[in-house]
Amino acid sequence: MRLYWEVLRRGFRRYSTYRAATLAGLFTNTVFGFLKAYILLAVYEQRDVVGGFDATDAVTFSFVTQGFFVMLGAGHLELADRIQSGDVVTDLYRPVDLQAWWLAQDLGRIAFQVALRGCVPFLVGSLVFDLDITSDPALIAAFALSALLGIVVSFGHRFLVTLTTFWLLDYRGTSQVATVVTMFFSGMILPIGFFPDWLEALARALPYAAMLQLPVEVLLGKHTGSDLLALLGVQVLWAVLLLAGGRVLLSAASRKLVIQGG
């Protein structure tokens, strides 16, 4: 465990070295927060409530999800580059668990991002708009847990996408598809309550909602009691399924490597 904590710390430190990139990302995220907020507000000129969200919910959603944007990451992990270049061989020599190693590094990256990019768009947005999140401390705590689970689900998904590099030898295609699908079904582009019923039902049945839509709904105070527990249960289920799938695929990948060579 100590090892993975050390990896997490280094993940944090690594990303803290890119100051200019962080500031540029911060600026972009905030601008897009405003863009999304104004587009959604145009919808609320016509209707008071869409998919269970009122105008304040929708604007709050816009800024919170912008903060989340970076946590979803690209469609793949940096590991994909290492697989493509063959550097992954040096990772396999070490007595470490590759999945745990990269999860720790991703959590470190996100821990750094959350501190800045998670909060600043929200704070700037709150200067202009009336943003409203739950004030119940128990729900805030539930949100923290739900957000963490969302990050693990997102990692589990990206790890799977990354491992396809072992077979396809190039990750750009799968990564791009994964990014678009994730953005769409996670609620990043539009709250999934805005979708037609059948599409919303589909989105809720996929793991993507567990990455973003569900944690933000918790923050907006949309779920309480057994409803909230069920939501967290769904997230845990996806996290376990995707991580287990990652392990199966990883052992298949190393078997392929062992049998067929680099």
């Binding site: 100590r2 090892l3 050390e6 990896v7 280094r10 430190r13 690594r14 070295t17 890119y18 063959g86 550097d87 061989v89 040096t90 020599y93 070490r94 007595p95 470490v96």
Partner: peptide, 27 residues
Amino acid sequence: IGVVFGQRTQLWWDLPLIDSFDLLRHV
């Protein structure tokens, strides 16, 4: 065993050299 590939590195690119060494203690 220790392994060194001339064209690959196991060091963390963005971090001070000493950080990679400290991590190896835990690895």
